[in-house]
Each structure stands twice: as C-alpha cells, then as structure tokens.
Amino acid sequence: MMHFDSSIRLFDQARRLMPGGVSSPVRAISPYPFYTARAIGPYLWDCDGNRFIDYCLAYGPMILGHRHPAIKEAVSDQMDRGWLYGTPSELEVRLAERVSSLYPSMERLRFVSSGTEATMAAIRVARGSTGRDMIIKIEGGFHGAHDSVLVKAGSGATTLGIPDSLGVPADATKNTIQVPYNDPAALEEVLERFSGRIACLIMEPVLGNIGPILPDKGYLQTARRLTEKNDVLLIFDEVITGFRLSLGGAQELFGIKPDLTTLGK
C-alpha cells in the first residue's frame, strides 16, 4: 500500500510559498502531487519510497529515460570543461549541423532557452518578413505562454481572439484568429476573408496539448497548399513532435516542408 505522508507535508509547505503550491499548472495534481526523490530508466521514486512508471519523462526531454549511462558520461565530461561560457563554442556549431541535417526545411536556426521563446520568435519573424500583423492558430493548440497565443478555445473559425487568461490585454490577441483542427474549409475561409493581412499559420502538426490528435489524411498537405496559395507562412510547432514522431519530426513523417519550425524539450 502506498503512503504519501512526506508528499503531503511538502505540498503544505509549498502552498505557502508558491501559487497553487507548484511551479507549473500541469503539476497541480489533486489532491496533492507526489514529490520525486530519484529516478532511473523508466522509473520514479517519490520521497515516501513509492515507485512509479514514468510515462511523462519530464514532458519530453528524458526520451532515453532517466540517468542513461551515455548521457550521464557526456554531461560529466562537459562539466569537467566548464559549466557555462556565455560565448560561442564549437559544440553549438556541431549541434546546429546535426539539427540542420535532420530538418532540411531549416535553412538557418537559432538556439533559445524554451519552446515559448522559440514560438514567440518564429511569429515575430513571420510578422517582420511579411509586414502583416494577423496570425492564425489551431483551436486547442499550445504554443507557449506569450500573450498573442493565449487565446480562449472555441472562439470560432472567423472570430478574432479572446484572451484566455487574466492579465492578457485584449489588444494582445486581437490579431489572433483560431480555426478548428482537421477543418481545411474553415482555414480556407479565414485565409480568404483576411486576404493580405495574415502573416502566418502556426500549428502543432499533431495536436499534443489536447491529444494527441492525428491529422486527417491530406489535411497537412492542404494546409501547406492553402498557405502557399495565400502567401502566408506556415510554422510547424514541433516542440513536442520533433525528434519523436521521427528524427525529422512530423514534417519528415508526413512529407511537409514548413517555412519555419520550432523545436524543444
């Protein structure tokens, strides 16, 4: 029988220090989260000694499991060379070469600190290069915690964005339009209605935040065709799908070449 006395005690302390007692809403497990003490391979142990199979794997980064020997050795070797430089290094050049070889659509890339920062930068690039302000996103898709993509679900295929959180000004989402996933007709309608005003369509090729939900046959190909026809940039947010659906992500698996790609986790 499992016991959670230590986790309950820690959660009581955490609630006095952090909103909701957690650092991210996804960790707000009711009635209290368990507190991990150690991990190896596919397993987690909490501070009460209970063992769990970890199907989450830190929401993606631990794709090889916890404390994989090869990863542990590589990290240890790098630590002996230094922890943080704040300058360019050969390692980032080699990593950029590796990523570029797996994602031919990425003619140039930039390393950032989070998926949120990546999607924010991609949208900014799209707006800057097109000179347009409006963007389209998919209902239920998650692209980080910046204001323009925190749009209330279900706002409708031709309705301008409504903030999904207190603290997000209406002006921040007024240029964001949502369309349903797997609905090419709705996408075409929006592209025609706001012709010449839309900078980009940002989408998870496979919805992860409310899924996973797979694309209908031909849907991604149609989205690519419609965006090209209307001179709108297509951003594939592959923060979740990248390196997982295949090494080259959803774009390799489905044979789509987006204009911009975001990776992470």
Rank of each mutant, 00 (worst) to 15 (best):
H3D: 10
D5I: 12
R16V: 07
S24R: 08
A28S: 05
A39G: 00
G41C: 01
L44S: 00
C47E: 01
N50T: 00
R51C: 03
A58M: 09
A70P: 04
A74I: 12
Y85V: 09
E90S: 11
R98N: 09
S100F: 04
S105D: 10
S105V: 08
E107V: 13
V112I: 02
M120W: 10
M134H: 11
H143S: 01
G144Q: 08
A145K: 14
D147P: 04
L150K: 01
L150V: 03
K152A: 14
G154F: 03
G154R: 00
S155T: 15
A157K: 13
A157M: 07
T158Q: 12
D164C: 05
D164A: 15
K174P: 04
T176V: 10
Q178P: 04
Y181I: 07
N182G: 10
P184K: 12
L187V: 06
A199I: 02
I202C: 03
M203E: 04
E204F: 08
G211I: 03
I213C: 08
D216E: 13
D216L: 12
D216Y: 09
K217G: 12
R225N: 05
V232D: 02
D237S: 07
D237R: 01
D237G: 01
V239P: 05
V239C: 15
L247R: 13
Q251I: 05
Q251M: 11
I256H: 02
I256W: 01
D259S: 02
G264T: 09
